[in-house]
Amino acid sequence: MNLPASQADAIRLIEAIGLLGVTISSAEWLAKPQQIRNSGVFSWDVCRLRAAWMVEGPIAAGLTVIFENPGLTLLLLVRPAIAAVIAFGLATGWMHAALITVVALVTVLVRVRFPMGLDGSDQMAGIIFVTLSLIYWIGTPRAAQLGLIFLTLQLCLSYQAAGWLKLRERGWRDGTYLARVLSSGAYGHAAAGRYLTDHPSLSRMLSWSVIALETSFPIVFVLPPFAAAGLLAAGLAFHVGTGLLMGLNTFVIFFGAAYPALAYSLGLL
């Protein structure tokens, strides 16, 4: 695949960050093996009850092989193994494309396997690797450009959708929702939650900062370069903040992985 340097650099960076993300994601599943056993929260015996074809028939039998241990553990090990092969430069050409396609396939299979416990970062992971696979198999500069623009637009859509939804809610506008979610055990940070509860004006200001960032994000395409860089930094800071305060580590990684596509798209203007 011969691509202009700007495309090749962006794709290489997206791939590297994305592979780091799926490696961490797989390792997190495997770090708590009891949760993916049939005795755990993510028991396949229970997860498959959502569809009759997952319970009986030839497809169900096939899924059981890959979605129950030891198949599931092997499935989760595939992505870190491929990440290592690519990191050491052991795959080139069609082999590289095939391996990224396998990563994409495993990433979407993980979404089939786990109907709960996933979040928006897993969605972004699936979108990134399916798009990279398509780019690699077609292998032309035009295909790379289309894929990178697509990832950019998905990133902008994510901010737009979330921003306008927040703007409609009084609790987001007055800052109470931010203070409350940061006070929760699941997504909160005890000290930050307490501080924002005690300082509602700060919570309101931060809440409006998030809303403003998300709703105004597409203006990045018309801003002068230094201002666009500032908006990108603010976007990344938002994800780092959610990682630190809410423990959403894969949000930082997978949304961060889409930023090289955005930087490339800005360079087209």
């Binding site: 928006g120 897993d122 699936g126 809610e169 699941a186």
Partner: peptide, 21 residues
């Protein structure tokens, strides 16, 4: 959407999950 490829981008909107179970 069996493979979950159509995203739902909410980022804790409209109402974040502040209740702990």
């Amino acid at each position: 959407d069996l493979f979950g490829l159509i995203p739902i981008w909410t980022f804790f909107a409209p109402r974040p999950a502040w209740t702990d179970y």
